[in-house]
Nucleic acid binder design. Structure first.
Lengths: 219, 219
DNA sequence: CATTGTTTTAAGGTTACTTTAAGTATTCCC
DNA sequence: GGGAATACTTAAAGTAACCTTAAAACAATG
């Protein structure tokens, strides 16, 4: 995990750098809010350790800006200030955790490991093929970054096709996954949905295989 | 957000239940580790508040088992024990946060909000979309800088929607986050709340996706 | 215990999705 | 090229999902 350490006390920074890299973390160190922000913008780290007492900028301000720019970049705040009010302000502004100085190194490591574990398991069910992006968990489809609204059946159908991109889905397979047991469809509903889908997707995104079924290519 | 409160001190539990639901959390309460585990297995909550001092099971054990079963279910640990060693043990076993008793309620709320933010989209306690501003911590909503009064359920509903702005919330998801176990709703209460909310919000702020659910857009 | 505000239930009206069905366009094969 | 099979499009009919309203049940407050 790549860390950005924002700390103006050079002695403390040096100690932290040493200890963190001994624990296997990769750490970049900056000592001003300005540098911190540009590093955050460059998406150059997986998490931030932020000391609130900075010379050029209020730490909570920096936190706020970081939060606006990189929504869920984890930030662990270090502070000398005590008192519950300050802590709540920090947490509500988007800090993921909080450590009051002086703190024990092992506790810092433990908290970083929590963040690490969390980053590893950020699951999004997103399929992207060509210009088409389908988010199964959010029920959302984008074509060239433009949200497209699909009806329920259209969404189901597209999902089936995109989940087995590169392979052919037979008409029977598609009908089976769109319709539950009792409600087989007597007519050409499937073709109608395909037709309506195509109007909303790039040209030739869904290919027909005469006598067999449909497919979308991974290309 | 649905919480599971694991606490054997009934007085404390009662107080927490009251305070948390006033803050708009949906809370289920159990007092033994056994019940806690079965609820966790059933995936019936988004986060756990766990008191380490349980009668039937060591709290850290429960934490470990929960972690094995539900990898990233957030757990906030309450404890009377002090000393850094214990805290590190808790964090490394998978607790996401730690509060030593006695603690101040607002700090608990703040830490829950951190967890909440992490689970959903990275919204801070103040979410502003279009003309609508929602302050999670103050329970306040403004439309075009004009304060608007919402009932508890209306607020919860709007919060859920705004926290996942840009994504679609299914009916099931919304109902699950509005109602705790015993109080499932048999009828169209959700639709009624949506309808009442819309009267108080800008036109088309809440969009319907037939057969799927509802959403508000970030734009 | 009465008043007030909130939440749920229930019913009818409305909208938009889905299917049907009929006509048009393709592809394939002789 | 002509005929048959298959696929595509369109528009209208059917249907399921949703919206609104009003009233009943419930909870909080003085």
């Amino acid at each position: 995990m790549r860390l950005l350490l924002v700390e103006d006390d050079l002695d403390l920074a040096k100690g932290l750098l040493l200890a963190l890299s001994a624990q296997g973390f990769v750490v970049n160190h900056v000592s001003t809010g300005k540098h911190a922000l540009s590093s955050i913008k460059a998406k150059d780290c997986d998490a931030v350790i932020l000391d609130l007492g900075l010379p050029d900028m209020d730490g909570l301000d920096l936190l706020k800006q970081s939060r606006q720019r990189e929504g869920n970049l984890p930030v662990l705040v270090l502070t000398a200030r005590d008192g519950i009010d300050d802590r709540i302000r920090g947490l509500d502004l988007g800090a993921d955790d909080y450590l009051v100085k002086p703190f024990a190194m092992p506790e810092l490591f433990a908290r970083l490991r929590v963040i690490e574990r969390r980053l590893g398991t950020a699951a999004t069910h997103l399929i992207k093929l060509q210009q088409v992006e389908l988010d199964t968990s959010a029920h959302l489809v984008r074509v060239e970054d433009e949200a497209v609204s699909l009806s329920r059946r259209e969404f189901m159908l597209l999902k089936e096709l995109m989940e087995s991109a590169g392979r052919i889905k037979t008409r029977e397979q598609l009908e089976a996954s769109l319709y539950a047991w009792g409600e087989e469809v007597a007519s050409n509903a499937l073709e109608v949905h395909i037709s309506n889908l195509r109007k909303k997707l790039p040209k030739d995104f869904i290919k027909t295989l005469r006598g067999v079924g449909y497919s979308v290519s991974v290309g």
